[in-house]
Structures are given as C-alpha cells and as structure tokens.
Simulated scan of single mutants.
Amino acid sequence: MSVVIVIPARFQSSRYPGKPLVELRGAGGAARSLIRRSWDAAMAVSGVDRVIVATDDDRIADHAAGFGAEVAMTSTACRNGTERCAEVLGQLPVPPEMIVNLQGDAPLTPAWFVEDLIAGLRAAPAAEVATPVLNCSGAMRADLIADRAAGRVGGTTAVFGVDRQALYFSKEVIPYVGHEVAPESPSPVFHHVGVYAYRPAALTAYAAWPEGTLERLEGLEQLRFLEHGRPVLCVEVEARDREFWELNNPADVARIEQMMQRMGLA
C-alpha cells in the first residue's frame, strides 16, 4: 500500500511572492530555503514511498532538483495545493493508496504529525480525506489572536464534532472563548496543521468541482470538501514539546527562526 507525499510550491503567492525560496537559518546558523526545509521534513516521515515537489515555476523546480528532490511540473491554472496534488496524481502510472499534501510553508512539521495522519486515515476506511489538528495552549491561542488583531492572516483553526469530522475551518480564531486561558494551559481552540491525506477518488472529485464560496472567502482549500458534503476527518496530533508555526507572512520568518533556535533545529 503506497503513500506519496506531494509538496505543492508556487512562486506567485499573493501574500508573499517567492516564499518557497526564502531562506531560514537554523540553530547551527545554516541557511536553507523554505522548500528545502519542507522537503527535509517530508523525507523524515517513515513509511512513505516517494516525495515529490510539485510546482509551476522553473526557479523552484531548478532549486529543488539541485538538492536532490523529485520534481513534477504542474499547471499555472492550479488554484491551490490540493488541485496541484490532483495533477500529480494524474501523472502517476499507478494510483497510490493515498496522497499526502505537505504544504511547502510548513518546515516545522514533525514527522509524527504526518505518520499519525496516515495511520488515522488507514484506521477509518470510510474516510476519504484527513487532516491533523493540534490543541492550542493558551500562549498559542494568544499568538493567533494577536495576528488577527494586527491584520495578519496567521494560522487556521478547526472545529469538529464528537465523531472527529470537521464542522468548519477558519482563519478567525474559533470557537470564541469568553475568558483568558493561562499560557501553559490547553485551550478549546485547535490549530489546523496544513497537511492533508487523500484517497485518490477524493482528489479526482475535488479537481472536478468549481471553487466554493466559503473556500474563496476564507482562502481555505479544504472548505471545498465541506461545501460539497464530503467529510474531512480531523486527526489530533501531539506537540511533544515541539513548537509549530507555518510561514504565512514575511513576519513569520523571524518567528520560525526563533523557534528553530529554541528547539535546536539546524
């Protein structure tokens, strides 16, 4: 049963053009590009058959090939990473058991996040799509709220039912909590980790649907599944004392570098 990780990467990001090639300095002072660090994170995941960087830009393709990555060229018409993953699926001679979308802006994604996600989808035969969620401490929740107050689009939050099926995803901090949460205490807020595991049929269906209204308003590709009545399984993952943040804005570079310094990540 094969698993393929696809890392979608585009140069023309509306919020941060050229983001995949931005360099991040680790604890040892070495500078590596965002796409290289995301590829390193993917290569650390056990039980994966292939890791493919999917892009429509020659600069990213040449850079990725230069550090040894397998590269798939995809269309400039792809509106998001899920559509890019669907194109890669169409290029594979034999469909894998699942495609994992490890977005190219999440270099701090620990291997166990992805391993637990794969295991979670395998354990739910009826599920077609799964994604990880991480319980926010009071401090992480405060960081998310601070980003929104400053007008920055920070992390995404998720709410789900008792069956772990997603009810909604938002760039607002949901659910609303009418009291303060101590920095080290767990909060009712779950940070959506931007990784997805799809069965091939789900990717094929997604690519055939038009962009959804909520998807467009929130700028969140996974909402297309919910808008078409397809459940998304939320798999809770554990931080294990690792800090996690995605690179959404230029201001996140310093934040991620500081996290890498604190965690001793080279």
Rank of each mutant, 00 (worst) to 15 (best):
4 V>A: 02
6 V>A: 09
15 R>H: 11
20 P>N: 12
22 V>E: 14
25 R>K: 15
32 R>M: 12
32 R>W: 10
39 W>F: 15
46 S>H: 14
47 G>S: 11
52 I>S: 10
54 A>K: 07
56 D>G: 14
58 D>L: 11
63 H>F: 13
71 V>E: 02
74 T>P: 02
77 A>Q: 12
78 C>M: 10
78 C>W: 01
79 R>S: 07
81 G>I: 01
83 E>K: 12
86 A>H: 05
88 V>T: 08
91 Q>E: 13
95 P>E: 06
97 E>G: 15
99 I>V: 15
102 L>Y: 03
103 Q>N: 15
104 G>H: 08
105 D>T: 15
105 D>G: 14
110 P>S: 08
111 A>N: 09
116 D>P: 04
120 G>W: 01
127 A>W: 00
128 E>C: 06
130 A>P: 06
132 P>W: 01
133 V>E: 00
134 L>E: 01
135 N>Q: 15
137 S>R: 04
137 S>P: 02
138 G>S: 02
139 A>Q: 13
141 R>W: 02
145 I>D: 07
145 I>Y: 00
146 A>W: 03
150 A>M: 07
152 R>Y: 13
153 V>W: 08
157 T>F: 06
161 G>K: 00
161 G>Y: 00
164 R>T: 01
167 L>C: 03
169 F>Y: 15
173 V>I: 15
176 Y>M: 09
177 V>N: 03
178 G>N: 14
183 P>H: 07
192 H>L: 12
196 Y>K: 11
199 R>L: 06
203 L>Y: 08
206 Y>W: 05
209 W>H: 13
211 E>T: 15
211 E>Y: 02
213 T>E: 14
220 L>Q: 06
221 E>M: 02
222 Q>D: 10
224 R>C: 03
227 E>D: 13
227 E>A: 09
228 H>S: 09
228 H>G: 03
231 P>G: 04
232 V>M: 12
234 C>Y: 00
236 E>I: 01
244 F>K: 09
246 E>I: 04
249 N>Y: 03
250 P>E: 01
251 A>H: 10
251 A>I: 03
252 D>A: 02
253 V>R: 14
254 A>I: 01
266 A>N: 10
